[in-house]
Design a protein around this nucleic acid. Structure first.
Lengths: 357, 357
DNA sequence: GCTGTGTACCCAAACGATTGGGTAGGATGG
DNA sequence: CCATCCTACCCAATCGTTTGGGTACACAGC
């Protein structure tokens, strides 16, 4: 009698319960089956209930009994066990530079929400925009056997990790930053830059500087390129000296603006490729006795929730961050299924506020 | 020149296709054992190598051969399989109101970092500070069989979820918000409030208002209580009408300050229990023609990375957010081991800046 | 020569769910 | 009345690891 055997076995080969706590074990498929006097496989098929395998698995009456008992006992399948058997974890890994960057945090919220709707869980890790850390974190996620990866910190010119993922046939997509040959969900950053160029030109600005972000991120690069190209099309002049690289945070924006102002240059407008950098730039302008909006226009990017509420409300290009996260999941799903995956470039819109009127 | 490189980016920089690689299965313990001609259990014991079980499991020579092959093939144990056997997932679940709140994002970075050092992965989910959503998300995490939970969105007076977790003997701790009877990792918010009271009193302010945050969060409640109590100890007067509840974000802070100002009240200082609320309040002050720092002092809380870089740098109580996240993990570990767990209340410090000089 | 003690392994049963392949018994069709 | 088809199940292997309990052999001590 295998059952008796198992019962006796219990004393020996068993992981000890945490003492004190009265076991309160979650019910398993076998428990359900035993209580109903039917075979676990039948229970499994019924609870799966994708018409394919559920068809003919059990009578309607039995199926109902199974479902009722499952609900009553609060049965939930053990993902470890089913994953072991099916070779799927229903886990998505997400790598971002830092979650404390609001932009990425919101995208991740989109990822989490969309993943939940298709029965996936996601987990996220910070790479601090460091390539070695990125590699380490990706390995950790693969060790967790994620079904797919969303890479939010692609570095221009350093594609070892991506190459490696392809070689290993791991399904993955990019988010926020793009790559010409890999499916990605991004904002149409080029278009966003163009919008700013058109806006500032219309307002009569002719002397502008760009706070361009990190050189390894396509976000900043594309936004800058879109701006510059459109600016020149409109007849504007802008040289390499008018473009200053910067970190993406407030301090980075302040430093970049400082660099411009210290040199004695007084542009009539600044385009910062990120709201936080724009806020830092506003600080630098104020330190130099300039009033934002009057002495110098400032436009940011992403239209984070702060922009509209700042003391001097900040004009910004609204990028659909949450939707980008959702799009990344949908894209990844297509990749995981082996379907063709067309990169999503979501459309930005300009929000004009007091900082650039 | 990164700029030029980036322009060319579109054409070059290609990721090679995986060349006909078939499946490329990750090696299992059995694979190792087979290649070495020994039994999987021996391999398992060697790779475990906690002196307990590794002792006497294999000769030094065999152990070395095993480790070498494991390294060569890039073996990594399947967490599903080992988790199934050991009943442990090495997964921590974290519930926060929203990751797009910088404060929680930074705490989560602390959680992730600390969890990694003890071989755990963490995953995080947003409850939008909604009790039903909290319950749902906790269920999802439990369905994933997390080994422990960090609850970052405890609501005062609604403790069904916590009671339920206790009943089910799930190891969990609180983060950011506290509960008198449950281990938690928080800032000493009361002390933080006191610091602000002392500072503003010293600066000669006698007429202050508090933007107090949500009534269901101990953070705001404790900060306000600490402030009020110390203020009265110092001889100050402050009534219920001087305390305005608010959301924790920028818009919430603006609305709260607006409410105060519209009533005609002109306090000489505002204490907002959150930096973002403080930024919103600064906006409202400006709209009413008041200059922050000169006409009205403003002090925030958390000392987020923005505070120091704002156009008018914001005085703020620095709370060690990252460390709170780390502390939460250490605390949870103690709980999981059944050790006594003493709540951690980390010490805040005041950063005085232009907004309150 | 026999018992005892290591050493260096192997064996096999779990963990919980899934799934290809049965099979018994009844209904249907010719 | 028998072959065939359904219905409603059951069986058993399997996923990759872990772990309590062997065992075979060598060597030491009495």
């Amino acid at each position: 009698m295998p059952r008796a055997k198992a019962a006796r076995e219990g004393d020996g080969n068993r992981v000890p319960e945490p003492e004190g706590t009265a076991a309160e074990r979650v019910p398993t498929l076998k428990d359900l089956a035993r209580q109903l006097g039917i075979h676990p496989s039948t229970v499994s098929r019924v609870l799966h209930s994708d018409p394919e395998s559920a068809r003919g698995a059990a009578s309607d009456a039995t199926a109902r009994r199974i479902r009722e008992l499952a609900a009553e006992l609060g049965y939930s399948p053990d993902p470890q066990a089913s994953g072991l058997r099916t070779r799927r974890t229903r886990l998505l890994g997400v790598v971002v530079p830092r979650l404390s960057d609001l932009v990425l945090a919101v995208m991740y919220e989109g990822v989490e929400a969309e993943a939940a709707t298709i029965g996936y869980s996601s987990f996220v890790t910070n790479s601090r925009d460091d390539v070695d850390e990125q590699r380490r974190k990706v390995e950790l996620m693969l060790a967790r056997r994620v079904d797919g990866l969303i890479i939010g910190d692609r570095h221009l010119d350093v594609d070892v990790v991506l190459t490696d993922l392809r070689r290993r046939a791991v399904p993955f997509v990019l988010m926020n930053r793009r790559h010409p040959e890999i499916p990605s969900a991004t904002c149409d950053d080029t278009r966003g830059g163009e919008l700013v160029a058109e806006h500032l030109w219309d307002k009569g600005h002719r002397d502008v500087c760009v706070i361009a972000g990190e050189p390894y991120a396509t976000t900043g690069v594309d936004r800058t390129a879109g701006f510059v190209q459109r600016w020149r099309e409109l007849g504007g002049e802008i040289g390499d000296g008018d473009i200053v690289l910067s970190r993406f945070d407030t301090q980075g924006g302040r430093e970049a603006a400082e660099k411009i102002l210290v040199s004695g240059r007084r542009p009539s407008a600044l385009f910062a490729v990120n709201d936080f950098a724009a806020i830092g730039a506003m600080g630098a302008l104020r330190s130099h006795g300039l009033t934002v909006g009057r002495d110098c226009a400032v436009v940011g990017f992403n239209d984070t929730s702060l922009a509209a509420e700042l003391p001097i409300p900040l004009s910004s290009v609204r990028s659909p961050m949450f939707e980008i996260g959702q799009a990344a999941v949908r894209l990844l799903r297509a990749v995981m299924r082996g379907e063709p995956a067309e990169s999503a470039r979501l459309t930005p819109t300009l929000q004009v506020r007091e900082s650039s009127i």
